[in-house]
């Protein structure tokens, strides 16, 4: 076991996979010599050289297009989109090209690629560098969507993403980069589509993703003081979605609260809520409650951003509403 930051875990994960498979290449803006704008790719250029770690022009379409064409023809590219907000300038490549290629060609084309991106708020960057856009990706058939909450999961899930034969959008929550966690020694490879129960409880199921996981855990701690036993599930991936774990938990607790960093409308929690309503209605003893960022862009000032994003207090309040 060693303690590691989420940011260092990203570099360690990429290094693990590049060492594991010579067809893995890393491409993106400032990922090489600079070690990434979040310093999440430090040391990779030195270790793997400029053929496999490629600094690019500011050309998101060209970067993702190159990743796609390379994946079609024998490489396993890892492409970085510096901020997930920038998906908006290359969404055609993601949503129309990468996501549909296997389907449209009746299975002729396989795209084993990963698009890493820094997602979400909490760092006072303002509305164009802070969105949580995982729900954009989740709504596109053909994409897998992963968002780790711990350094350990960064490595295990990243390895799974790289080795997966499908295109995976890998959301690194940027507020988590400085956070630390224990990581076991040796190669780590997880399986996509397995949620993790981070805290067991009996009264309510709280489902969270990425940066909302530690917050949900804090809320569970606070709720324990008032005698409420909350179970906290870290989804880890949205596609595949681990309905089994969610449904199993709701069957025991009878209550569901989702904690989403994305803005309210069509956030991933809406899909989770609809599945539970459709398939687990008779397990429910209270309303499903969604705690989200409001239907608004994220503001920059700390006071405003903190008020916009789900806080521990709002999660606690959401749980109380579900239990009322």
């Amino acid at each position: 076991m060693a303690e590691m930051t989420y940011r260092d875990a990203v570099a360690a994960a990429i290094a693990q996979e590049m060492a594991h498979d010579p067809s893995v290449v890393l491409i993106g803006e400032d990922v090489g010599a600079a070690g990434g704008v979040f310093k999440a790719t430090v040391g990779l250029l030195e270790k793997f050289g400029p053929n496999r770690v490629v600094d690019t022009p500011i050309s998101e379409q060209a970067i993702l297009g190159a990743a796609m064409g390379a994946a079609m023809t024998g490489l396993r590219p890892v492409a970085e989109v510096m901020f997930s907000d920038f998906f908006a300038v290359c969404w055609d490549i993601v949503a129309n090209e990468i996501a549909k290629a296997r389907y449209m060609t009746n299975g002729q084309v396989s795209l084993p690629l990963v698009i890493r991106t820094a997602n979400g708020g909490g760092v006072r960057f303002g509305a164009q560098h802070s969105q949580s856009v995982e729900s954009w990706a989740m709504s596109i058939p053909g994409l897998k969507v992963v968002a780790p909450s711990t350094p350990r999961d960064v490595i295990g899930l990243f390895a799974a993403a790289v080795r997966d034969p499908d295109p995976v959008i890998f959301f690194e929550q940027k507020s988590l980069y400085p956070t630390k966690g224990e990581v076991e020694e040796g190669e780590l490879v997880d399986e996509l589509g397995r949620a993790s129960t981070r805290r067991q409880g009996t009264d309510v199921t709280v489902v969270a993703l990425a940066a909302m996981v530690p917050r949900a855990l804090d809320a569970a701690e606070a709720l324990a003081q008032e005698g409420v036993s909350a179970e906290v599930i870290d989804l880890r991936s949205l596609v595949p979605l681990d309905v089994t774990t969610i449904a199993g938990s709701v069957a025991r607790t009878g209550h569901l609260v989702t904690v989403e960093e994305n803005p309210r409308l069509c956030g991933w929690g809406a899909e989770v809520a609809s599945i539970v309503a459709e398939e687990c209605l008779f397990d429910l003893d209270g309303p499903i409650v969604r705690v989200t960022t409001p239907h608004a862009p994220l503001p920059a000032a700390d006071a405003l951003e903190d008020a916009a994003m789900p806080s521990v207090a709002r999660i606690v309040e959401g749980v109380r509403r579900s239990l009322a």
């Binding site: 023809t73 055609d92 090209e97 290629a101």
Partner: peptide
């Protein structure tokens, strides 16, 4: 794919970027 006809694309311009990827891969390999 069998004929290395790697696709016909209907979003104007996109496939130029994808063609680069195939060329990159060929170069790397």
């Amino acid at each position: 794919v069998e004929h290395n006809m790697m696709g016909s694309y209907a979003i104007v311009g996109a496939h130029l970027t994808i063609a680069n990827g195939a060329a990159w891969s060929a170069k790397l390999r």
